[in-house]
Amino acid sequence: MCLAVPMKVIELKENGTGVCELENIRYDVDLSLIEATKLDDFVIVHAGFAIEKLDVAEANERLKLFIDLAEAYSAEDNG
């Protein structure tokens, strides 16, 4: 029931809805439960509603941690 991955907002409509995209598939999404959505925001969608935005700065920081961990691991592994 819960599509756990973030989708990108690619179109905003007047009635508080929008179109989001995930892996080239488009979904109509109700945006009334989140604040001030902008184009290119990433949102978490559940049952046709965006329930929260992805904090991109936080997400990028996490990704950097994972890249560092991966690099450290392969360095160790090869050494």
Binding site: L54, R62, F66, A70
Partner: peptide, 19 residues
């Protein structure tokens, strides 16, 4: 798709599993 694949990096997974 970095917000999906980046969270499935298998080398990072091995590193955390080791810990």
């Amino acid at each position: 798709m970095k917000y999906i694949d980046g969270f499935r990096n298998h080398l990072a997974a091995r590193s955390i599993t080791k810990d």
